[in-house]
């Protein structure tokens, strides 16, 4: 047996790699970049050590459950590596009554992720979020609709513990939601546009319900704020709702406009075109995840723990506890 393989199979090396892995996990915990070279190196070293030990240590051939446990551990490390290379994680916001068109607020994906999120389409048909006094969120129910593979319309209520799963992308709707100001933009030349300005998540950012954005072809940004005295999230419990009485404040340079609730269609002339306020709606936030290794990881983990329990059971059955 080559000396290097024997060295790699050493139990002492296992201990060293365990300590190395522990330190890498602590480093990853305190750093923003989680998948650090230290973590990759420690897991690679542990895998090599496991592989060499399984191949050379005769103890594993005598102890089948222990071998199965270590093989399952090896499979878990390999699956995590595949998962990190191919995963997709994103955050999207979809206004009530509008369709998800593949736009994300945040995206984080592995280098080998086979992009396919553009195949996913659904409409946010409305959200019901219940609160207990406090207020404390009790649950989120978000109605979504889509066209299935047979071309027929389908609807489902998603929310806590119930994601929408389309083309292996999982859309989780839970606490993240807010208000959206709907606007139309008619440029002096060109086609009219319609869109929304999603205000920061509510009630997490209750005191900062404002956002700045730029209109197409307009260099100077526009600032819009929503002001209200209502309780969209009732202090004594109830459902999240749109404020009944509110004011939308818009600023462009030194100019300032105020639009009251119910003034949908109010127009503001700006350099380059006309901005129309169309109304107030809610937006729903979705946590999006894609990781095809998940069922395999679960399978490998269950095999690992069953094999470990089997190994200890066999070992301890040889001598009673009360001997």
């Amino acid at each position: 047996m080559p000396r290097l393989v024997l060295l790699l199979a050493s139990l002492k090396l296992t201990l060293v790699t365990f300590v190395f892995l522990g330190l890498s996990v602590v480093l990853a915990y305190f750093n923003e970049v989680r998948t650090s070279p230290w973590l990759v190196l420690s897991l690679s070293l542990l895998s090599l050590n496991l592989l060499a030990a399984i191949a050379t240590n005769p103890y594993f051939r005598r102890q089948v459950p222990l071998m199965v446990f270590h093989l399952a551990l090896l499979a878990i490390v390999i699956l995590i590596a595949i998962g990190r290379l191919t995963y997709f994680k994103g955050r999207a916001e979809v206004v009530e009554g509008e369709a998800f068109t593949g736009d994300f607020v945040e995206i984080d994906a592995g280098p080998w992720h086979p992009l396919g999120v553009e195949q996913v389409q659904f409409i946010n048909l409305g959200t019901r979020i219940r609160y207990a006094p406090g207020p404390v969120r009790i649950g989120t129910e978000n109605l979504v609709g889509w066209i299935n593979d047979q071309g027929k319309p389908e609807q489902a209520v998603i929310g806590d513990h119930t994601p929408l799963i389309r083309h292996h992308y999982r859309f989780y709707a839970n606490w993240n939601k807010g208000f959206a100001l709907m606007f139309g933009w008619q440029p002096n030349t060109g086609e009219a546009l319609r869109g929304s300005v999603n205000l920061p998540s509510y009630p997490a950012n209750a005191l900062t319900q404002a956002r700045q954005w730029s209109l197409p072809g307009n260099v100077q940004p526009i600032w819009a704020a929503l002001q209200f005295d209502d309780e969209p999230v009732p202090e004594n419990g109830g459902e999240f709702r749109l404020p009944q009485s509110y004011k939308v404040v818009i600023r462009h340079g030194e100019q300032r406009w105020e639009i009251d609730a119910g003034q949908g269609g109010a127009d503001i002339d700006l350099p380059g075109g006309r901005l129309s306020y169309l109304g107030l709606r809610t937006w729903m936030g979705y946590q999006v995840a894609w990781d095809r290794t998940m069922p395999w990881l679960l399978g490998a983990s269950v095999i690992a723990v069953l094999a470990l329990a089997w190994h200890f059971w066999k070992k301890f059955a040889q001598q009673p506890w009360n001997a």
Binding site: D160, Q287, V288, L298, V302, A304, V305
Partner: peptide, 19 residues
């Protein structure tokens, strides 16, 4: 503890969309 970590990962995936 291994079982606790596995069950916790299933719960986290189910509740927050990440294991």
């Amino acid at each position: 503890e291994t079982l606790m970590l596995i069950a916790g990962a299933i719960w986290a995936q189910d509740a927050w969309g990440r294991y």
